[in-house]
Amino acid sequence: MATLRELTTNDQYVLQDAERLRDIDALYIKMQDSYCFAQHFYEQTNLLIDSRNQQQQHLSSLEKLYSIQP
């Protein structure tokens, strides 16, 4: 698939406007998909970080409760 720069310059490709717009739309959809993946990955990473922090707090509380030295 062509990049946006290749699609918007006249030097490299000879495309009709309809073809150029179709390719730009396809590139836009691909970028939306990539963005959604990155956003989901970021959210899942934050959930993992929060979970680990909660587990560490729970462990610290248990260590204090039972007078265990870490």
Rank of each mutant, 00 (worst) to 15 (best):
F37L: 12
K30S: 14
L4Y: 07
V14E: 04
D25W: 01
D17M: 02
E63R: 12
C36I: 04
T9C: 13
S60T: 01
M31V: 06
N10T: 11
E19P: 04
D11Q: 10
E19D: 15
D33W: 04
F41R: 08
Q44C: 09
L65N: 04
D17W: 04
Q44M: 11
L15E: 04
L7S: 02
N10S: 06
S34L: 12
Y42P: 00
S34K: 15
Q56N: 14
T9E: 13
Q55W: 05
R20Y: 02
L21C: 02
Q32G: 03
L62A: 05
A38G: 00
L47S: 07
L27K: 07
S61R: 08
R5D: 05
D50G: 13
Q32K: 08
A38V: 01
Q44A: 13
I49W: 02
R22P: 00
A26K: 13
N53T: 11
M31A: 10
H58A: 10
A38W: 05
Q55Y: 06
I24E: 01
D33E: 15
E19C: 05
Y13Q: 12
Q16I: 05
Q32H: 01
T9A: 09
F41Q: 09
T9D: 12
R22H: 09
A26W: 02
L62R: 14
I24A: 03
Q56A: 12
K64W: 01
L27A: 06
Q39A: 08
C36K: 14
L59N: 10
R52D: 07
I24M: 11
Q55I: 09
I68Y: 11
Y42F: 13
L4V: 12
T45Y: 10
T9G: 06
A26Q: 10
S60M: 07
R20P: 00
L48F: 05
I68D: 00
E19G: 07
T3V: 05
Y13G: 03
N10Q: 03
Q39P: 01
Q54M: 13
Q32R: 07
F37N: 06
T8S: 01
V14K: 08
L47A: 02
E19Q: 14
I24P: 03
Q16N: 12
K30T: 08
P70D: 08
Y35M: 11
Q44T: 10
S51N: 12
N46D: 09
Y35D: 09
P70W: 09
E6K: 12
L4E: 09
I68W: 04
L62N: 03
I29V: 14
L48R: 05
Q54Y: 10
A26H: 07
R22M: 09
L59H: 11
E43K: 12
D50Q: 12
D33R: 14
H58D: 10
C36Q: 13
L65W: 03
A2Y: 10
V14N: 07
Q32D: 07
Q44L: 11
M31E: 05
L7A: 06
S34W: 04
H58E: 08
Y28D: 04
Y66F: 15
L4A: 09
N10Y: 01
S51W: 06
L47Q: 13
I68C: 00
L62C: 11
Q54H: 13
D23V: 00
S34M: 12
Q69R: 08
I24D: 02
E19T: 13
L4R: 14
S67Q: 15
K30P: 00
A38E: 13
A2P: 03
Q32M: 06
R52M: 15
